[in-house]
């Protein structure tokens, strides 16, 4: 599932993910209603923007972690604030189901991280 206030981005990302034939993709562009949307959709993995108007990504993560059903949900945070180098390959393995990815991200990288997250969940 994708949560990002940038509609163009979520549209294109959804199209790219659906084209792989591997995913069923839900989208939410309103940060305020994101948590409800996530509860309703029950995703296997969440792609979450960090800086959004109103509630930011960090707040959403905090709310999800208090929900027994969602506290182990793998989350990939997409941020325009950090540099790409800051994600080391080890970070995926070490993280508590939370990975930071720097925008812009290419599909190759994104798919690897999604697979790693789902693998961890399974």
């Amino acid at each position: 599932m994708l949560v990002d206030d940038e509609e163009g981005f979520t549209n294109l990302l959804r199209m790219n993910l659906e084209k792989t034939g591997l995913f069923e993709v839900g989208v939410e562009n309103e940060a305020d209603s994101a948590v409800d949307a996530i509860r309703a959709f029950k995703p296997d993995v969440l792609l979450l923007d960090v800086v959004m108007p109103g509630v930011d990504g960090g707040d959403i993560v905090a709310q999800l972690r208090t929900d027994p059903e969602l506290k182990n949900l793998p989350i990939i945070m997409l941020t325009a604030l950090i540099s790409r180098e800051e994600l080391s390959p080890d970070a995926v393995a070490e993280s508590e189901n939370l990975i930071m990815l720097s925008k812009p991200v290419n599909m190759e990288m994104l798919l690897k991280v999604i697979e790693a997250s789902l693998g961890k969940k399974a």
Binding site: F9, L81, P104
Partner: peptide, 18 residues
């Protein structure tokens, strides 16, 4: 600037990927 520019870049890249 990074935030404002990186978001459209991310979008562009998604488009190109598609």
């Amino acid at each position: 600037v990074a935030h404002e520019v990186k978001n459209p870049l991310a979008l562009l890249l998604m488009g190109v990927e598609y």
